[in-house]
Structure formats: C-alpha cells, structure tokens
Write a protein that binds this DNA or RNA. Sequence first.
DNA 1: CTTTTTGACTTACAGCGTAAACTTCCGCGT
DNA 2: ACGCGGAAGTTTACGCTGTAAGTCAAAAAG
Lengths: 204, 204
Amino acid sequence: MVAGIALADERGIDAVSMRRVGEALGVEAMSLYRYVSGKDELIDAMVDGVIAEFPASDTALEWRERLRTLVLGAYLVLLDHRWAPAPATSRPAVGPNRLRFVDDILGALLAGGCTHQLAHDSLHGIDNHVFGFTLQEFRLESGLSGRGYELDALVAGNDPEKYPNIARTIGDAHHDRDQEFIFVLDVLISGIERAIAGSTRLLQ
Amino acid sequence: MVAGIALADERGIDAVSMRRVGEALGVEAMSLYRYVSGKDELIDAMVDGVIAEFPASDTALEWRERLRTLVLGAYLVLLDHRWAPAPATSRPAVGPNRLRFVDDILGALLAGGCTHQLAHDSLHGIDNHVFGFTLQEFRLESGLSGRGYELDALVAGNDPEKYPNIARTIGDAHHDRDQEFIFVLDVLISGIERAIAGSTRLLQ
DNA sequence: CTTTTTGACTTACAGCGTAAACTTCCGCGT
DNA sequence: ACGCGGAAGTTTACGCTGTAAGTCAAAAAG
C-alpha cells in the first residue's frame, strides 16, 4: 500500500496498476491479491493511508482555531499527495482514519456550541472543503499547458463579451491557492459561527 | 455526446466506453473518432453538455437570492446526472458552458458588492460547493448496501469509544441531502456577506 | 465525369483487472 | 526425521479497454 502511495505520488494515480505496484515490490501482479481483494481495496487503503498522516487537532485550542489548524493540517498533507482527493471523493468507502478525521471535526464543532444537527450539517461543508477544494485546485494546476491557472488561459483567449464578469474580475484578482483555501475556510467558519449564534434563519 | 449522457445516466459513467457509445448509435467504436479526438474529449463534452442545462440566473433578483436560485438550479440538474460531478471535478478541461456558469456566479457576487478579489475567492467556494458537495453526496448514496447513508452504517458497527463525537452526533441528527446542501450554501452566502461588510479580518 | 472529401468499417495491439490452477517453501506436530 | 497444511508467489488465460493504421463506398465539389 505504501508502495502504491509512492507510485501515485511520483507518477499519478493513473500509473497505479496492479502490475506496476507488483513490479515496484519486485513481485508479480497476482501476488498482491494475497493482501487486498482487488484494486478498489488497494486504492481505498491508499487513500486512508494518506488521511492517516493528517495531524490530530489540539483540543486545548479555542474551537475556531482548533478547527482551522485541523483543516490546514489536512490541507498540507494533501499537498504532498495530490492524487488523493479524487479517489477520496469519488469512491464510497470510508476508512478508519477518515472516520477519525471526521470525528475530530465534529469534536471542534461541538466544542463551539453546535447542536448535533448543526454540527452534522456543518461537517459536510468542512469535509467537502478539504477534499473538494483541493481536488478542484489540483485539477486546474495539472492543466496541460505550463501556465499555472488554466481558467485564466482559457478566458484570455475567449470572447470578453460572452463572459463579461470573468473579464471584469480577472486581472484585478490574483490567484493564490493557499490564501484562497484559507479564505473559504474562514468564510465557512464565520458562517457556522453565525449559525450557532442565531439558531433560527441564517440569512437576513 | 447526447448518447453518452443518456448512457451514463442509466448505467453510470463506468459503462461509457467507446464501443458501447458506438453501439447505442448503431455504429462501430472507431467511427466516433471522426467527431471527437478521443475518449477524454467525449467525457469533457458530456460534462459541458450537462452544465448547459443549468438555468441562467435572474439578474433582477437581490444578489443573495439570485445566487441562491442559481446554485439550486444547478443542483437540481446534477440530481439527474449523478455521474457528472466526478469528471467535472477531476478533469482539467473547462468548457464554454462552465465558463458561462462561472460568469453568472461572478455576476451575482459583484452585484452584491464584492471586490474583484473577494468575488474571485468566493467563486471557488461556491463552485466547489456545487460540484464537490454533490460529488460526495452521490458517492455516499451509491454505497453498496441498500442503506441510504453509509457513514451511519459504518459507524453503527464501530467502536463508539474510538469515535466519540460521531457516536454523540449520530442519532440526534437526521440526514437530509437537500436540506444539507441548502444549509451549507447559506453558510457560504452568510460568510461572504459578512466578508463584504467587514473587508478586514473575517474571524473575530 | 473526375476528383476530393467524408464517414464508416476492419484489423490489430498493448495494457488493464482478475479468475483459476499450479508450484515452492517454511513451520509445526508427531 | 518425516509428512503435511497452509502461506506466498507464479503462470496462464480471458474479456475488456482505448486507439493507431489501413481500407473502402458513397457523397460532394470541381
């Protein structure tokens, strides 16, 4: 499994095949079936192996800061395993380390005074931010050209009358992945904070 | 392309192969290469074809309501094409309809008084919510068992001492996909709203 | 009427996941 | 010391995938 992670880290998730993982271990492909029931189980194990690297949160911190560092810790790990968000979000399996991670998020939310229902709902927003945001960012960064940000490139060569708001926005805004991740995270925390305060209607 | 969408709708994205799409069109697999350069381009076209169904926003609405209906419209379309979020989030291509969708979101944000930078950053949060949240929800709902929510099932059979916060939360909270999607959306809008008001530090 | 373009078909190949059967070898009870 | 059970690894094979290359008939253009 660690061999699979290493292989995916340097050659991408598509390079992970039973035959190649076997080769990396100096063994035939079919031998791997002694240890996993199939490729799906291997991928699931690899994903959970990455999540195992997520640092646990410091429960002594104030809940917002605790949540913030917890999520940022996960983010930093995912930076080193950019293939991981895709299988983590598209496969149904939920491994023990992911459960631990989810449990940690819930712990911070409950410490902040969320009702169980509110914590449950907010969890989805946070969890999705961790895996969904990274997934989309890494995807764009892997765009064919050498340019850092494919959306820019596409729009630059496109009709500014067709996409007026993009044309207006681009150029004035700079793209910084890390800062953006933190911004959305803070938006989420801020929104949850407000939901805790006024437990009734959120908007207005 | 529409044949590919229909095929994916009823048999899943994995059932989409060149040979099967060709079969659905009464044609051999290789004939498709007259119209697309390869399978990747086909999938990209299918994704953009789904996004083409997203209804445009009503620019007359107040910005928050405009953004809300815009995103909900997209959500409803994705409910009918549950395979779409996965390729939409994991492939680098950005089609014209997706650009239009993004442009629409930006329009609502700018109408709300966002700076260009704020609109740009918020866009990522909204866009990721649309595709990332649906991706994760559909993934869980496709879990093997007949149960609706796999996380429940997993945790139910797991050590409540290992995941105390999950154990505390589950049972008290009920899972309603639609309501959850709207909740997180409102959290995002609420957070953006607050970011517009106080342009300085978000938390505290 | 000839030439060019178009659309589809056929064949072929390398790679994939994995089912099934087979060999090799180590550790243990007798 | 012997035999044997099970673990570990290999070999072979099958059906599936995307797609490169070459062929051929019909339609469109000159």
